[in-house]
Amino acid sequence: MTTQPILDVSGLTMDFGGIRALNTLDLDVNNGEIVALIGPNGAGKTTFFNCITGIYTPTAGDIWLTPPGGGKKISLNGLKPNQVTEKGLARTFQNIRLFSKMTVLENVMIGRHCRTKAFIFGAIFRNKATLQEEQGILETSYAILEKVGLANYADEFAENLPYGAQRRLEIARALATEPLLLLLDEPAAGMNPQETIGLEHLIKQISREGQAILLIEHDMKLVMSLSDRIFVMDYGKKIAQGTPLEIRENPAVIKAYLGEEVDA
């Protein structure tokens, strides 16, 4: 491949006091790909997400984001979370973090925040540009809700949604920021089998539309069926990478998961 990967992480290291949570980790995601990051509990997967999204400042390492189609490489090092999102990395959270006292539609509208501009003046005077912008926000948000199948819930409070729908809303909200790369942190956690199947369809659908996705997931069946490539972590280190087929046969992976079911 000649094109640059969308996300290129190299040598990412994160220390908490004396504990090395991430150890010189390399990872890349290409345009249109679904990449999975797996590993036993406490391997440092969520820490990895927190580092690349600017919630933690990594001890060492480089994070590069390249817009597809020959855009300029952007360094994400040292950016604040909101700047990272603006540059094109959007995430969901392992323990759902919706704006629970806002409606479902408003939750998605918040995602449009970084792609819109209206400020105090616009808010008070509602000039034409602001009105058009608001209309745009509303239309895009509604379209995204339709895509994830939550349009019927648009005026419900987010906290009143069933669990699976809340996870979908998190995805919808992240999509609203128009990310170059979508980061999903255990999207299937706590879902029943039916909801998981629905989620699988949703992720595939989003991916078909050209969205690059990096996901952390424990559900091996889901990971194997979705991913183009898989990275495996243990104790903050990358222990393997490859296609689902390669990973399934990798002895290091089997060893790391020993005692845990590799169900695929």
């Binding site: 909101n82 925040h113 970084c114 912008e133």
Partner: peptide, 20 residues
């Protein structure tokens, strides 16, 4: 847009930042 951002900030700061 600003008002929505305020309310979102009140609800969850970290999620808010993650939304840009």
């Amino acid at each position: 847009r600003l008002g929505r951002a305020w309310i979102a900030l009140r609800e969850d700061e970290i999620a808010c930042q993650a939304m840009g």
